[in-house]
Structures are given as C-alpha cells and as structure tokens.
Nucleic acid binder design. Structure first.
Lengths: 151, 151
DNA sequence: CTAGATGCAAACAGTTTGCGTCACT
DNA sequence: AGTGACGCAAACTGTTTGCATCTAG
C-alpha cells in the first residue's frame, strides 16, 4: 500500500495529474486479491467519494491499463470466443491482433506444481496461454494494426 | 467435418432438434482454426441462410456451450477484470464462481516446449490458468451459486 | 399434434464519448 | 492560465428476452 506522496510521484512519473478521484480509484483497484471488475471498483470508490461518476472510473482504469499501471486478466474480455476443439489443448495468443492458434497439449511438457495448491482449490485442468506476436503482426507495421473492436 | 447424418445424430444425442439453421451454425462455429466470435459465425451463416437472425445464432451458441458441444475461450469474456499484480504470475480460476487467485510464478516448474513453436510466433510470456473449483464453491451447494452476471 | 426452434424488435449490461465545467500544476 | 480531469447524459456494442409463428419429431 503506497503512501499519499508515493502515489503522487507514481502518477507524475506517468504524466498523470494526481487528482483525488484518481488516487482513490487506483487504491480501489489494488485491494487484494486484485482482479476486480469496474463495477466492484466503482462500489469501493463510492464509499469514499459518493459523487464519483462511473465514467470517471472507466476513464481512469483505461488510463492505468494504457500506461501499464494495471493489466487486464484476459485479452478476450469483451466478446465471446467459441472453442471448437474438444481436446485439452493450449493457446498461442497474439497480443496485438488477439488471434488464437491451438497448441496441442503434447507440445508442452507436463505442468508441475512445486507445492500443494493453496486455498482448498480442486484443480481440474490447466490451460496455458503463450502470449506473443503472431507472424502476420510481426510482418505488418505496427501502425496499421486494426484498432481492437472494443476495450 | 461431419456428414449430414452424423450431425443429426450428434444433435439427437444431446436432445436437440436438427434444424437447418442449427446445422449451419454448428458448422460455421467449427471452421478452422476455431475460436470464432458470434459476429464472425453470424457472417458465415448468413452466406448460406441470408435470413438468419443474429438472435438465433446467439441462442444456438449458448445451447452448444451449455451441452458441451462447444467451449468458450475464456471464462472472463463479458466484463473487464483488472490485474493489479505487476509481477509475472499465474491464476487459479474457479469455473463456478469465476473468482481468481494469483499463483506466484515460482510455484510452477518452468514451462517447457517440446518442439519449436509453429507459425513464426514470437512468444513473450506464458500465462497459466489452473481451472477448478475453489474452496468456497466446493463447500457451498451447487444450486446456490449465483447466476453468472452474463454470457 | 406438440415441444421446441426461429425471427423480430425491444430490453439490457458493460463501456465509451461529447461537452461544459472544474481543478491540478 | 492552460491542459487535462470530472460529471453527466447520450450513444454504442455485444448479448438476451418476449412473443408470435413455424417446424421437426
């Protein structure tokens, strides 16, 4: 948890004004265990700033993501992608054009846990995403990449 | 690629009527490399059945997913989930309540490829999702799980 | 003949945008 | 003082639903 002035510095380092809303939104996004949804963050922020606008929360989250202060859990939040391959398998995912190519399970050596899984979690299967740049995108100049549909 | 009557059998095995639309939608969802979006599937289907309704496509995709004929690429399509942990790490994902818990990278033995990656793909990082049932959900009776927000 | 499927339009949820006003720097 | 942030409402995208009609079994 950052102090008030560490937070200011962090924002300034990224060229962002250190507004009150922004600070509270950032803190709300960082509360453990992370992975919050915009709605959940909005709810937390409203407890401290009852008048915040949901749009402000969205604008800030996008700003944070764009400058790397936050990440996103999945590149494919947004629209549904259907999975036609019924076999267990993994994915090569292009972070630029979001395309997905299957990788047969046997292409990867088995995943090994170093310790027992925490939290009474009962694992059923393991899905590996290998994130990178696909052939088409590394040929294509960066500027010409299609603007992602949304999000 | 299934023949017409194999397709009929497949549907009947799942208690689904073998309508013309359904067959075409299924085939459209299965065209390689898979992972199509509903819009993309709709576009393919319209080439064969110009009058299809987008709603019919959505209804069928949901039906297919519900009965296991199709999967979905990510459990988190739908709404954005923010990632507050800047360190490379993996995820334990509950397939029932969609909750996410981080797993430190060092908890997993390094991922090893058995062969070179295909397609000129330039890998940058590997994200592992361990899918299963979280402690809370394995205690909680199945019926009481919250209806997922959407999708 | 009947349960279930389709098509249409309207409803929704999540997210973004335009614009006037306000606040950091 | 000027640039960027905020708040509001309206616009948009992706998805679902209600209902009348049609069709496979």
């Amino acid at each position: 948890m950052l102090t008030h002035s560490e937070l200011r510095q962090l924002f300034h380092r990224h060229g962002l004004a250190a507004t009150h809303q922004r600070q509270i939104i950032y803190e709300a996004a960082m509360v453990p265990p992370g992975h919050a949804s915009p709605e959940a963050i909005y709810d937390r922020v409203r407890k401290k700033i009852p008048g915040v606008s949901l749009a402000t929360v969205y604008k800030n989250l996008r700003t944070f993501i764009d400058c790397g202060l936050l990440g996103r859990v999945s590149l494919h939040s947004g629209s549904l992608r259907v999975e036609s391959n019924p076999e267990p398998h993994h994915h090569l995912v292009c972070i630029r054009c979001k395309s997905i190519v299957d990788l047969e399970e046997k292409e990867l050596a088995p995943i090994r846990f170093r310790h027992k899984l925490p939290y009474g979690f009962r694992a059923q299967r393991v899905a590996v995403d290998i994130l990178g740049i696909c052939k088409a995108c590394s040929v294509r100049p960066r500027a010409s990449r299609k603007r992602p549909t949304r999000r």
